[in-house]
Amino acid sequence: MTSSRWIALAALALTCSTPAMAKDWKTVTVAMEGSYAPWNQTDASGKIVGFEVDILNDVCARAKLECSIVAQDWDGVIPGLTAGKFDIVMDGMSITEERMKTIDFSIPYASSPVAFLADKNGPLAQMSNTGKMIDLSKDDAESKAALDTLRKELTGKNVGLQVSTTEATFADKYLKDVANIHEYKTTDEHDLDLMAGRIDVAFADTTYFLGTLAKPDAKDLEFVGPQFKGGPILGPGIGAAFRKTDKDLQDIYNKALKAALDDGSVSKYSMQWFKIDITK
């Protein structure tokens, strides 16, 4: 084939695909899971709505970007981002050192400690340190003691969490040798299995569980054990993810996000979706 034919072919492919071609970033494609309520969830009409959608719309309006959302299962968001299927990921993703090796993050727009959810009437309802916040970045005696207790109490238990999350890394480090870890594709699936009794405890972000507890069929569930935040595994907060090569897009996004955080818009969305301000 001659090179002009190749160009024609490429041009054809260009016109019928959604390219991330905008050199001056007019249009961007943003991936969300669409089933991580209330961060991003699908409503009955099939539209993705939620806390992160509101932030995105705000940021895009400020940055004069045309943003479109695509649904992408969680286990494909980072490979999809690096492969170029979309330009930004907003999916309650914690900023961690491990992920920073592959991708870049915006400034954090929320913080959400991780927590455990279990059956009110089950054996784990009496876990110690319930409601206590453990900051792993301090790495002090208190956090060590809390982790030891946690390991003891979860020994032999079935723990459900979402694949490829900070919770999974946490469990890999602290729980793998004592508990049975079940990795799910979505957080909804471990909720369903917790209600069905296949797992003893579900492990995810506090903010996500607030959404779970608001659902009518979750009336028998409650938070158990301590909450954890910070440190190299859990990271400083939640941000939007970018390819390492797209520094320019990241700068545009950060500038707009900073403005939205400063004037209290993001806090307002947080109150709407979570009833608490999680930007702090």
Binding site: I78, V163, E183, Y184, K185
Partner: peptide, 22 residues
Amino acid sequence: SVVTIMEMMGTAQKIQHDTFRP
């Protein structure tokens, strides 16, 4: 692999998540 079993496909997907080299 879609129901949490780590057979060959599930294992491959886990490595893929950890290394981002699908």
